[in-house]
Amino acid sequence: MIKIEIKPSQVTVDERPGEKDGRKWVTREQSGYIYLGGDYPELFVFRLAEGQPPYEAGFYELVESSIEVGQYKRLVFSRSFALRPIQNIKA
């Protein structure tokens, strides 16, 4: 299980608009801490789908469909990045 923590200060969406070849777009991101086995969790940023509300503060695990095998057989985050709440967990 990959554990992710969203702190109360991270319950916001960062939006960055842009334009390329006449097409306008908006990137929506949220940040959290991911536990990868080290002494401390690491800060990371992940995309939110259009219209998706930010995840609330708490502990989550990565949903399996969030990871896929990409180009050259490398693991990558899918565009449908999703988290599942973890109940009764301690930091």
Rank of each mutant, 00 (worst) to 15 (best):
T12A: 07
T12D: 09
T12R: 10
V13M: 05
D14H: 12
D14C: 00
D14W: 01
D14R: 14
E15V: 10
E15N: 09
G18H: 06
G18L: 01
E19T: 12
E19M: 13
K20L: 09
G22P: 07
G22S: 03
G22Q: 05
K24M: 06
K24V: 08
W25G: 07
W25R: 07
W25Y: 15
V26L: 08
V26Q: 05
T27I: 14
T27R: 15
T27M: 12
T27E: 12
R28W: 06
R28S: 09
E29L: 08
S31L: 00
S31Y: 10
G32H: 03
Y33P: 00
Y33E: 11
Y33W: 11
Y33Q: 10
I34V: 14
I34N: 01
Y35H: 13
Y35I: 01
L36S: 09
G38M: 05
G38C: 03
G38I: 02
D39R: 12
D39G: 11
Y40G: 00
Y40E: 15
Y40L: 13
P41N: 07
P41V: 03
P41A: 05
P41R: 02
L43R: 13
F44H: 03
F44C: 07
V45G: 00
F46H: 03
R47G: 11
R47W: 02
A49D: 13
A49Y: 02
A49H: 10
A49C: 05
E50W: 04
E50S: 11
E50R: 09
E50F: 07
G51F: 02
G51L: 05
G51V: 04
P53C: 03
P53N: 03
P53H: 01
P54W: 02
P54V: 04
Y55F: 13
Y55G: 06
E56S: 14
A57V: 02
A57T: 04
G58R: 03
F59S: 06
F59Y: 14
Y60P: 03
Y60D: 06
E61W: 01
E61F: 04
L62P: 05
L62C: 07
L62W: 01
L62A: 04
E64C: 09
E64V: 12
S65V: 09
S65I: 08
S65E: 15
S66M: 06
S66C: 07
E68H: 11
E68W: 04
E68Q: 11
E68T: 13
E68C: 10
V69D: 00
V69Y: 05
G70E: 05
G70A: 08
G70M: 08
G70R: 09
Q71R: 15
Q71M: 10
Y72G: 00
K73Q: 15
R74P: 00
R74I: 08
R74L: 12
R74Q: 14
L75W: 11
L75S: 12
L75Y: 13
V76H: 10
V76I: 15
V76K: 15
F77D: 04
F77E: 08
R79G: 12
R79Q: 12
S80M: 10
F81T: 08
